[in-house]
């Protein structure tokens, strides 16, 4: 699944390390999420969207 995590994070000037710490995951997980190699659980997706003050649909781009 594609997402806008990297774009939004960079826009907000947040480092991967800080983002990872806030979500309680490793920096490698953030990296994998941003490159689309790993899809998050619904719980983590919620946490990410909430962290950015956005909805899940605004962060994650669903495609068939």
């Amino acid at each position: 699944m594609k997402n806008r995590m990297e774009e939004i994070r960079k826009d907000k000037g947040i480092r991967q390390e800080d983002f990872a710490r806030a979500l309680g995951v490793s920096r490698q997980t953030i990296s994998s999420l941003e490159t689309g190699r790993y899809n998050p659980s619904i719980q983590l997706a919620y946490k990410i969207a909430r962290y950015f003050d956005l909805t899940i649909e605004e962060v994650f781009l669903f495609e068939e």
């Binding site: 990872a20 309680g24 995951v25 998050p40």
Partner: peptide
């Protein structure tokens, strides 16, 4: 340690 244990990608 907590991050490594609770990290969902690690579990995956």
């Amino acid at each position: 340690t907590d991050t490594a244990v609770n990290d969902e990608r690690n579990r995956f």
